[in-house]
Amino acid sequence: MTDHDEHPGFDATHRGETFRRFDFTDTVFDDTYLVGARFKNVALKGARITGSQVVDVDISGEVERLTVNGVDVTDFVETELDRREPDRARMRPRKPAEFREAWDILERRWAETVERARRLDPELLHERVDGEWSFIETQRHLVFATDAWIRRALLGDPSPWSSLDLPHDDMADIPEVPRDQSVRPSLDEVLELRRDRMATMRTVVDGLTDDAVESRTTPVTEPGYPESRDFLVADVVGCIINEEWYHHQYAIRDLAVLESRGRHTG
């Protein structure tokens, strides 16, 4: 691999371009310059990187069977993450009591984090850090996730949406699902929705039984998201546990950056 600036013998350059919703399955990248490239919401299942420079690379996401120079480092990474954050291991519940314990943790953590966010200049809560969702966009997305998986898939409401719901970026537009990326609600507006959705989740986890977690949902036939099929209840409720945990991790990561800018309300 040579430096592109010193050895500009490339057939084409795509510097600074964004490739969105492209399918590169089975594509071969050979003698290709990817310095500074960013990969977001990509699927790299079965990817192979050989004979390459992998220097100062930062990977975050769902990692399974990651092998570096012949060594599977997956278990090491998972063990280290659990060591650093003991509550993380509790975010993989399968029994009713474990779901309740996980939700107790998430309720407490979000309450603390919201109080932390309130100390910032309200405008900062609309600000994205490194291109990721703002704090308020994160709250909107979690409202959407609960609407989709709990109120629709689990509880059977075919159209549970709020106008402030914010689907994930890589989801195709669905006419029945709101997706207004330009709206700028206040923190109190989105928190009112969050309190309602979190209360619904609390009711669900408190009502779980051993039989319930192993049962399947009744498919919702009307168009929307997720698709019209049945799901294992443990997977549906676990999806929200997972969403809440990881988006909380992203939120506190970005709040630290916003706090460093020194604009507080009091």
Rank of each mutant, 00 (worst) to 15 (best):
D3T: 10
F10Y: 13
F10K: 03
D11V: 15
D11C: 11
D11W: 12
A12W: 02
A12V: 14
H14A: 12
R15A: 13
E17V: 00
T18Q: 05
T18D: 09
D23S: 02
D23I: 02
D23C: 00
F24Q: 04
D26R: 06
D30R: 10
D31L: 08
Y33M: 11
L34Y: 04
G36Q: 06
G36A: 00
F39N: 05
F39H: 10
K40A: 15
N41P: 04
V42H: 01
A47Q: 01
A47K: 07
A47T: 12
I49E: 12
T50W: 09
G51A: 05
S52M: 03
V55L: 14
V55A: 12
V57F: 14
D58C: 08
G61P: 12
G61T: 09
G61S: 13
R65V: 00
L66N: 07
T67V: 10
G70D: 12
G70C: 00
V71L: 11
V71E: 13
T74S: 09
V77P: 04
V77F: 12
L81A: 15
E85T: 12
E85V: 11
E85A: 07
E85N: 14
R88F: 11
R88S: 01
R88V: 06
R88H: 11
A89Y: 02
P96Q: 04
A97S: 14
E98R: 00
R100V: 15
R100P: 03
D104R: 10
D104V: 03
A111Y: 02
A111D: 05
V114G: 12
R118K: 13
P122C: 10
P122M: 09
L125M: 07
H126C: 10
E127I: 09
E127P: 08
V129P: 01
V129C: 03
D130N: 13
E132S: 15
W133I: 07
W133M: 14
S134R: 06
I136F: 04
L142E: 06
V143K: 05
A145H: 06
T146W: 02
R152C: 03
L155T: 04
W161P: 11
W161M: 03
D165R: 11
L166R: 06
D169H: 11
D170E: 09
D173A: 11
I174H: 06
V177G: 08
S182M: 12
S182W: 06
P185K: 03
P185L: 05
P185Y: 09
D188W: 02
E189F: 01
L193K: 05
R195N: 08
A199S: 13
T200V: 15
R202D: 08
T203L: 04
T203E: 13
V205C: 06
D206N: 13
T209G: 02
A212V: 07
A212M: 12
V213Q: 07
E214N: 10
S215F: 02
S215R: 07
T217R: 08
T217W: 08
G224K: 03
P226N: 00
S228F: 02
F231Y: 14
F231S: 00
A234V: 01
V237R: 07
V237K: 09
G238Y: 02
E243S: 08
Y246S: 06
H247Y: 02
H248K: 05
R253A: 08
L255D: 08
A256V: 08
V257E: 03
V257L: 10
E259A: 11
S260T: 09
R261F: 07
G266C: 04
G266R: 01
